[in-house]
Design a protein around this nucleic acid. Structure first.
Length: 301
DNA sequence: AGCGGTCAAGTTGAT
DNA sequence: ATCAACTTGACCGCT
């Protein structure tokens, strides 16, 4: 069965994940700041519970958790330890309840740290803060039972092989909580499937295949070939990404995502797989509902 | 309630 | 030099 995945937020359903800004948080005195951050964490745990319920009730098989689910968690000055915030232990319990609920309802949870998280950087400070962020996301993943933390290769720094070698070295230093969940995804500017598949095989880390990125940045490999090889890198349910270009494939820049998925962009060879496909479409749950209907319609026709 | 200015972080390529 | 893109515009402070 194909499991369609929703990314981070809802277009129509009234479920929101509140965040704050560092400057505002730092304007508050520590007691108020900690109270405010705790309030936001609690609200995010509640929203996550709602999100999981919504997904289960609407045929959405997975949900990507926003990196800011604990707002400013690893910020150099505003960062904090949730257990030490007022009511922190209770909030952690709420997250664990979300995990139990997701398991019970069969909703897979994933993370996708953002563009600043780099294991290939030439600057040790960048890698260091990236590892801190990964550790935070892995800790929340453990509460939630999330099994994937998906990142990109990062920059090329003029030498992709050297950059990947640095990433490989950084991988070896990761703790088990991060390492057991980490995956690498091809991007639309630098790292193609042809770049990452050998890296993933060498380091025994799963490869997240984004077919939209692959079409924006081709490498001579076909979709079927990459699909076959990507599947082999997974020891659990594989994870793929799908989107459609906002302005069509003929546009000067095909990278921006469309509100919905054009069924023509759904690879035929994915139809019968047991995989999670995260749907990166601006209309979010509405796009998933439409895609689901089209896929099922196609099967019956 | 609505609106404009602002927001932690890296890297790249288009303008 | 600035900006948009990247998984996601949302939040704060003012009117």
């Amino acid at each position: 069965m194909i499991r369609l995945g929703l990314c981070c937020k809802f277009a129509a359903a009234p479920i929101r994940f509140p965040v704050t800004t560092a400057l505002y948080a730092l304007k508050l005195d520590p007691a108020r700041r900690h109270a405010r951050l705790a309030e936001l964490c609690r609200a995010n745990a509640a929203a996550l519970g709602e999100a999981i319920k919504y997904c289960a009730a609407n045929g959405i098989g997975s949900f990507r958790v926003n990196s800011q689910v604990l707002p400013l968690k690893t910020h150099p000055r505003a960062g904090y330890d949730l257990a030490k915030l007022p009511g922190g232990a209770g909030i952690i319990k709420e997250f664990k309840k979300c995990g139990a609920q997701a398991r019970r309802l069969g909703v897979r949870l994933t993370f996708h740290p953002d563009q600043f998280i780099l294991l290939s950087s030439e600057k040790p400070g960048v890698t260091e803060s990236s590892v801190k962020e990964l550790e935070y996301q892995a800790e929340v993943s453990a509460w939630l039972g999330a099994d994937v933390i998906n990142i990109h290769g990062g920059g090329a720094y003029g030498d992709k092989a050297a950059a990947l070698a640095r990433a490989g070295l950084a991988l070896k230093k990761l703790g088990r909580a991060v390492r057991s969940r980490l995956a690498f995804e091809n991007d639309d500017r630098i790292y193609t499937p042809a770049d990452l598949l050998p890296f993933c095989r060498e380091h025994k880390v799963p490869f997240v295949y984004d077919v939209h990125h692959h079409r924006c940045l081709p490498d001579g490999l076909g979709v079927e070939e990459v699909t076959r090889q990507a599947l082999k890198t997974w020891d659990r349910e594989p994870l793929f990404h799908l989107s459609s270009p906002r302005d069509g494939w003929g546009a000067a820049d095909p990278r921006p995502h469309h509100d919905y998925i054009d069924l023509k962009d759904f690879p035929a060879c994915w139809r019968r797989l047991d995989v999670t496909i995260e749907v990166e479409a601006k209309a979010k749950e509405l796009a998933i509902a439409r895609l689901r209907a089209q896929l099922e319609g196609g099967r019956n026709a």
